[in-house]
Simulated scan of single mutants.
Amino acid sequence: MYTHLPDKQTLENLQAAFIQTLDAAQTPEAITQIRNDFLGRKDGKLTKILRQLKTLPEAERKAIGMQANAMKKTFEDALQEKLDQLGKKTVQKVWIDVTAPGKKPNIGRLHPISSMIQHIRRIFEQLNFDITNGPEIEDDYYNFSALNFQKEHPARDMHETFFLPRKHVLRTHTTATDIHYLETRKPPIRMVTIGKTYRRDADLTHTPMFHQFDGLMIDEHISMAHLKGLLHIVMERLLEARLEVRFRISYFPFVEPGAEFDVTCTLCRGEGCVTCKGTGWLEMGGCGMLHPNVLKNAKIDSEKYQALAFGFGIERPLMIKHKVSDLRIFFENDIRFLKQFDL
């Protein structure tokens, strides 16, 4: 606080101190500090002088007041000019080599499962199949009863199901979509459903949510020979390899006869390895001739028409194709793993 009334000499001394301090400032932060020291609303040195003007004799007040106000404007202009100079100096220090190669941006890509789904879609589109999907929440009728699962049939125990209120379930197979589709169309039919399914299962080769593709072909005189030929073509295109195929008799409530469909192991070429458990064969999924009861439930004449049916997981051929041993890693979203796939 000034102890004497401001006069011309006081202002000149203040101006000299301001110039000296400003010349020494080399950063924007220093400029801010100088502004607070000299022009701060509460403790600024020039601000204090302006407050004392009212104590001066009237004859001096006008002259000192004009000089002090002019000095305030000079200080503000000088501070801004210095700040601009420091900003230009900072920009000048940034050197850019315009001839240097640019940094390659990280480009997104399809998830391996999404890519496999697109691959499957293309295969069946080329075979003139209609691609469809249905609700993931089904009632008991479409998920079980319409597919020849009787009320107390032990085959229901094959599916560890996620049950929901009002007798609804998360669909345990994409086959549940078949009846929806058949209710609105008449033979001849070629259709494949691709989508998510849900079961209470989790280990190296199973997850609670997984993907399936499930197909039907309905026409007169359809046989197991058509089924074998169709699946042979599909699997060779899917795995991008020459394959031998075989049927193994199996049971599924919605097909009769039913079979497991196997292909030669793509890792050992049929010689036997750990992946195929020494058999030389890899199990791909279930298939067979659609049960007449299922055709009747869809109001299709089972005496006139026959239907082949198949249902395979999507993750399994993906694991085989890329030699991945643990299915769960596809759902962990580890970018280091996912970026390895050149899809």
Rank of each mutant, 00 (worst) to 15 (best):
Q80V: 10
L227T: 06
Q33T: 15
H232A: 06
Q9I: 09
V98C: 12
T90I: 11
N148W: 07
L127S: 11
Q20D: 13
E160D: 15
K103Q: 14
T175N: 08
N128I: 04
I137Q: 06
P154F: 04
F124D: 13
P187H: 05
L227Y: 08
Y251V: 03
V274A: 14
I329V: 14
I189H: 01
E240H: 08
N148I: 08
I117V: 14
I314K: 12
K73N: 11
K299D: 00
G285I: 03
K323H: 15
L83F: 10
C268M: 07
T55W: 06
D219I: 03
E81G: 07
G102Q: 03
F341G: 02
R122V: 11
T99P: 00
F75M: 13
T266K: 05
M1Q: 11
L53E: 01
H291M: 03
I194Q: 05
L230D: 00
H173S: 07
L39E: 00
L46M: 02
Q80Y: 08
E283K: 14
L53M: 04
Y251D: 12
G280K: 12
M224R: 01
K42R: 14
K151H: 10
Q126W: 07
A16F: 11
A25E: 02
I120V: 15
L22A: 03
D334K: 10
I19K: 14
R200Q: 12
E29N: 09
D214G: 05
H119G: 05
P253D: 01
V94Y: 07
S302V: 02
V324H: 01
H221C: 08
T132V: 15
I120T: 07
T172A: 13
T174W: 00
E125D: 10
I131Q: 10
I31P: 05
L282E: 07
D201N: 11
F247G: 05
G195I: 04
I107T: 14
Q15N: 14
R35F: 01
A78F: 01
F144I: 10
A17L: 11
R200K: 15
G258C: 07
P188G: 14
V274Q: 13
K277E: 09
K304V: 09
Q306E: 13
V98F: 15
K48A: 08
H291R: 02
A241P: 02
K299Y: 05
L170G: 08
H168Q: 15
P101N: 13
L11Y: 04
T264Q: 02
E81K: 15
G313V: 03
W95H: 15
N297M: 12
I96Q: 11
D77N: 11
P165R: 12
E236M: 11
R328W: 01
N133W: 10
A307S: 15
D326I: 05
L230I: 07
P154T: 07
I320H: 03
F312C: 07
F149W: 07
V255T: 15
F129Y: 15
K54N: 11
I233K: 13
F210E: 00
E183R: 06
P105S: 07
V263D: 00
P154I: 08
I335S: 08
